[in-house]
């Protein structure tokens, strides 16, 4: 990837899935398939949390100011 002078705002689109996914109750309001005995309703949302971590990290890394010595 080429180094951008100015971080692109388009990266923020990646924040949409973790915002919307937990609201789609008709999609995940069911028992099957289960994972480790957990109904789908529960493990789907735990996966949403994992998805949120990954996507927000990507957005953070892609849009942060690359300045030396930010500490």
């Amino acid at each position: 990837m080429t180094r951008r002078a100015r971080p692109s705002r388009a990266w923020h689109l990646l924040l949409v899935p973790p915002t919307v996914a937990p609201l789609l109750t008709p999609l995940y309001n069911r028992i099957e398939p289960t994972l480790w005995g957990l109904p789908f309703f529960y493990w789907y949302q735990l996966m949403c949390a994992v998805l949120a971590i990954v996507l927000i990290m990507i957005v953070h890394l892609a849009t942060r100011d690359r300045r030396p010595g930010w500490r």
């Binding site: 924040l15 937990p22 949302q45 949120a52 953070h60």
Partner: peptide
């Protein structure tokens, strides 16, 4: 049961919004 779990999607959605 399930209704009480609302805190979890609530907490998840809060993070991308809070990030911005």
């Amino acid at each position: 049961g399930a209704v009480g779990w609302f805190a979890v999607p609530f907490a998840i959605i809060t993070t991308p919004l809070a990030f911005v």
